[in-house]
């Protein structure tokens, strides 16, 4: 589904990603781990088109999409759920979902999708007329996911969905990620929380200093003291 090869990204004079290559097979959940400043978010932003890579290629479903603009990535079915939710705080829950369907044209299909989303996230239906900014952290995370689903993605890029949430809420997020895969989605999950990654992902890559330093089955991570200590700093 996603094929990233030799990705190189600079912010001004600073090299953030040196040579990052990995693939995300269709219907897989792949985790991208790493400490602060390791470049995880930059990988997602380069795939989403928010930052332009200096070198390397990004292919989506076999087609070259390197350097495509964010809206064109969404049209290709690649949708990022940014870190910190970033919901449209002044707008209602319902309007957030409608705007989430920015690349959809068919009004009836959009209405049906919203109805379906409310089935999936009943908590959001109850708060459909509330301003998104007043929702709890867990509800905002659900809204950010729901809004991304409105674009009918094939590949979801999730940036630290567990950050700042209570353990019980994290459990429901994990369950949602599993459900989404069961519905046919492919997921690239960026995490600092190894527990979350090990719980849902098939395979994990660990980023350090702008390169992928370790790759392996996600369930092995939790036992792999070397990786945890040397790459994630615990």
């Amino acid at each position: 589904m996603l094929d990233v090869q030799h990705l190189e990204v600079w912010y001004g004079p600073t090299e953030v990603l040196r040579d990052v290559s990995f693939t995300v097979p269709a219907n897989a959940i792949i985790a991208l781990l790493g400490g602060n400043g390791s470049g995880k978010t930059t990988v997602l932003n380069a795939v989403s088109g928010l930052v332009a890579p200096r070198a390397g290629t990004v292919r989506v479903a076999g087609e070259d999409a390197t350097g495509a603009a964010p809206h064109s990535m969404v049209m290709r079915g690649v949708v990022q759920i940014p870190q910190g939710r970033e919901v449209f705080a002044d707008m209602t829950v319902q309007d957030n979902l409608e705007v989430g369907a920015a690349v959809q044209q068919n009004k009836r299909a959009i209405r049906q999708d919203i109805a379906e989303i409310y089935e999936l996230f009943p908590a959001l239906r109850a708060r459909r007329s509330a301003r998104a900014g007043v929702l709890s952290g867990g509800e905002q995370t659900q809204l950010a996911m729901a809004r991304a689903l409105m674009a009918r993605p094939r590949l979801l890029l999730m940036d630290e969905p567990s950050v700042g949430l209570a353990p019980l809420v994290v459990e429901t997020i994990i369950q949602t990620v599993r459900d989404l895969r069961a519905r046919g989605l492919t997921i690239l999950l960026v995490e600092q929380n190894v527990g979350v990654a090990a719980a849902v992902a098939d395979h994990a890559h660990v980023l350090r200093d702008g390169v992928i330093a370790y790759s392996g089955p996600a369930c092995d991570l939790i036992d792999n003291r070397d990786v945890l200590a040397s790459y994630l700093g615990r």
């Binding site: 989403s48 949708v79 991304a148």
Partner: peptide, 18 residues
């Protein structure tokens, strides 16, 4: 609504495909 969303959060607006 697209204008409101862009005014509220341009990055998130780009990420939903605006």
């Amino acid at each position: 609504k697209f204008m409101q969303a862009t005014a509220s959060n341009p990055k998130a607006a780009a990420l939903v495909g605006i």
